[in-house]
Design a protein around this nucleic acid. Structure first.
Lengths: 231, 231
DNA sequence: GATTGACTCGTACAGTGTACGATGCGAGTT
DNA sequence: AACTCGCATCGTACACTGTACGAGTCAATC
């Protein structure tokens, strides 16, 4: 197991500031990896995953299309960087430190999910990408917390992957099933018209219940119950 | 909650067989939705998700590129059809019927995962697509089985989504992390070089353990333990 | 023979990512 | 001052994509 993508690391270095003349008249400051990634995130937020074109991104930056390729190896790398930039984690309020392991885990995973739903494109991107430093940091936090909570080293692997799977599955699903009301109405109609084939699905209101957050929390509790049985 | 995609349903109907003259000399039988989908699956299997181009698909079928568009609305629809065609489920051997609910659930979910891993592109496709009939059938089976197992209607929703999340997360992860040995070696090296930052990850051999199947089974057991506590 | 409708496909177009090479620029070095 | 050199930018060009459009084929029907 490990991550894909051949480490890119394109050129570029620090640059002399243009003689400090107050806030530039916008869009004339030099290109930089940070600016590129930040703008890519904005673009992804507003236009979605297919809305990110190299030319468009360059336009938003007030640059020529090919200028981006000095800072970035290819479009894929832009995706990688945008994804990891969105997954930074500052940790919980440090008050309840180290007492409540379960609270910490839940907090981090909820924050993870929330962050990805704030940038829905990230959910679709995650499975295909490398493990960036922010993701690894979260996994490390998860590992150490669970270890402190008493999960045996032999089970740690399974525990982490189970939680990972749960979060990934939940966010990708949620991100792609977030519909307009019209869509929802159409889907409801379609489903009831097929209700003789799927009676239990209908009874459970599987596709109609909108309480994604609650479902995520409850399911996470169940999973944690299984992983670390209450003594 | 519901499915995306505006129902397509492109033209096409049954066609008169060319006067039965034994097995055609290959690649001269007429186009059909079935042939298109089957060939698309083959192509996806061998070339991956980016390897499916309309022109290439048409070539493989011995047809002109634009002929496909008589049977199919657009490329997206090809993806939808290929995905659902891969997710049919025949059910378990009917011997142990209805006794062992947990065995049934595990069997279906393992089969689900196995099917998707046989066609790794399907994992990447699933989250973005509509719920086809084969997927809905699996969800219905899951619902009814869990219901029989004693899960309250109020919890059914959470239970189903939890299992869904787990399966989706596990398969997409597995499908995108399936690396060559070289890749794995490189990743191992990279990780150990960062081991001071991620000590617990290293200790748990998170990225190095290759027993995906075992991890999937164990995690699934934990989750089911949480969902339906052993009485 | 004429008409119709199912089906096929060649051509064309508006994009896409990016290879390549020309250009500008600021700092050393001589 | 003239020079080189590395960083950084960008215009042009190319190969390739999905697919709109319309002309073509062919069998069944009138």
């Amino acid at each position: 197991m490990a991550a894909k993508r051949s480490g890119g690391q394109s050129k570029q270095s620090e640059r002399k500031v243009p003689p400090p003349s107050g806030p530039e008249p916008r869009s004339e400051q030099p290109l930089s990896l940070e600016r590129i990634v930040a703008t890519a995130v904005e673009l992804l937020d507003s236009e979605g995953i297919d809305g990110l074109k190299m030319r468009r991104l360059a336009d938003c930056l007030g640059a020529g299309a090919m200028s981006l390729y000095w800072h970035v190896g290819n479009k894929e790398e832009v995706f990688d960087l945008a994804l990891d930039s969105v997954l930074a984690y500052r940790g919980p309020v440090p008050i309840d430190a180290s007492q409540d392991w379960r609270g910490e885990v839940v907090h981090m995973l909820k924050d993870w999910r929330a962050g990805m739903l704030r940038h829905p494109w990230s959910a679709a991107l995650l499975p295909r990408r490398a493990l960036g430093p922010n993701i690894l940091a979260r996994l490390e936090l998860l590992s150490s917390t669970l270890s402190r909570a008493g999960v045996a080293d032999a089970d740690l692997n399974v525990a982490i992957w189970s939680l990972w799977n749960y979060v990934i599955g939940a966010t990708t699903t949620r991100a792609s099933f977030d519909l307009s009301d019209d869509d929802r109405a159409a889907a409801q109609q379609r489903l009831t018209s097929l209700s003789q084939h799927y009676p239990t699905i209908e009874r459970s209101r599987l596709l109609l219940d909108n309480d994604w957050d609650g479902a995520f929390s409850k399911g996470l509790d169940f999973l944690l119950d299984g992983l670390v049985p209450k003594q």
